[in-house]
Amino acid sequence: MSGPVRKPGKPAKKYSQAARLHDVIRILKARYGATVAELAEECGVTRRTVYRDLQALEEAGYPLTREEQPDGTVLHGFISEFKDTLPITFSLQELMTLYFCRGQLAFLRGTPFQDDLDAIFARIRSALPARSVAHLERLAEAAVPRFQGLRDYSGKREILESLRDALLRQYRCKILYAPPRREAEEYLFDPYTLLFFKDSLYLGGFAHNRGALRLFLVDRLQRVEPGAERFEVPEDFRVEDLTGSAFGLIDDAPMAVRVRFAPEVAHLIRERTWHPDQLLAVEKGCSVVLSFDAGGEKEILSWLYSYIPHVEVLSPPELKRTFA
C-alpha cells in the first residue's frame, strides 16, 4: 500500500529546532514545570534532543530552573514571574545614560559581570550606525571616574560565576568565609543580593548557622558551592535590613552624631544626603551642623577625617574624644 501523495514542489514538513523551542517555551510557561520525559513526548522527540533544546534556551538567556521532586524526577521550568518580552529598543538619550553608567563600574573588571556588560554593549554597537557609536563612546570616556585603590576581582571569577548563578536561580549555597585574622568558617547561606559599596562587592543574605541576615565581603570568600535546593526571598526583605542604622555597612550600636562643618566646606555638605534621617542646620557665618543617628564609628571617622581641618565633632563625647 502506497503512502500519502505529496503535492509537487512542496517539501516534507520538518519540525525545526526554532519551532520546537517555541513549543518548549510555551509548555514551560503554561505550567509549573515539566520533566524531560514529558517534553520529549509532547514534542515528539528524543530525550537527548530535549536536553539539547534546554541547553540552547539557557545559552540564549532564558532563566531556567531545575527542581528535584520527592520521587527523584526533575522538573524544568522558568523562574517565578518570568515573562517573555519583546525586543527592547532604546532612545539615543537612554543609550547615552547606559554608556555613562558603564563608566562607573570599572571595579568589575575581570569578573563575569564585566563579560556580561561587554556582551550587552557589543549588541548595542551592532545595531547602531558607526558614527553614533563613536559619539557615545566619546561621551562615556568623558564620564569615567578616577579610582584609587581599585580592587582586583579577576581572582574571584569562579566564585562570582557561582554566585551569579545562585542569585539568579535562588539556590541555597555552602560558602567558606575567612574574616580578617580569624579561621575560615563554612556557612549554609541563602544569597539575596550583591551590594556595591565604595568600589567593593558585598554578598548579602540569610546565614542559617547564625539564624540571621549577614553581609560578607566578596574579597574574603574562599569557596561558593550552590546546591540543588532553592529558597524564596521573604516578601518583606529590604536591603536596609542588612545594614541597619549603619552610616556605611558596619552596623554597630547607633549614636547621636552632631558635626559642625566650617564655611570652607559647608557647600559640599549641603549638596549631598549623607544619611536618610539627617538634619541640616545653617549657622551664623555660613557654617553648617549635620545631625543623624547611625552606627559604624570607624566609617564615620574615616569620612570626617577627609574634611580636616574644617570639621568639628560636637557629640557624642566618645566620638569627639576619638576624633581628637
Rank of each mutant, 00 (worst) to 15 (best):
Q93A: 11
Q104Y: 07
R164K: 14
A130I: 04
F90A: 01
L195Q: 12
P112K: 08
E283P: 02
M1R: 09
F237A: 12
G205T: 09
L215R: 01
L221N: 04
H275A: 06
E94S: 04
D115Q: 12
A281R: 15
K284I: 07
D53A: 03
F100E: 11
R146W: 09
N209M: 00
I25R: 10
G295L: 03
Y202H: 13
L136P: 11
L136N: 04
I124L: 10
A40N: 13
A60N: 05
D23L: 15
R48C: 06
L314I: 13
E81N: 14
A34M: 11
I175K: 04
T46Y: 12
G248S: 00
R20I: 09
Q93W: 05
P63D: 07
E297W: 00
E58A: 14
R146I: 11
D199E: 15
I308G: 02
K174V: 14
V233Q: 04
A262G: 02
G9M: 07
F189I: 07
D84A: 13
R220D: 04
G3Q: 13
G44Q: 08
D277L: 10
G248R: 03
G44V: 08
L221Q: 02
G204M: 10
E312H: 02
S91R: 06
D23R: 15
L194W: 07
F247I: 13
P63V: 06
F216I: 03
T65G: 14
H135D: 08
E68A: 14
L167I: 09
A37I: 08
Q222G: 08
G205S: 08
L221D: 01
R125Q: 10
H76C: 12
G110Q: 14
L301N: 03
A60W: 10
A256L: 01
I159H: 11
P63W: 11
H22E: 11
Y177V: 11
F261S: 02
S302Q: 12
G211I: 00
L92S: 14
L280W: 07
A127Q: 10
A37P: 07
L117P: 03
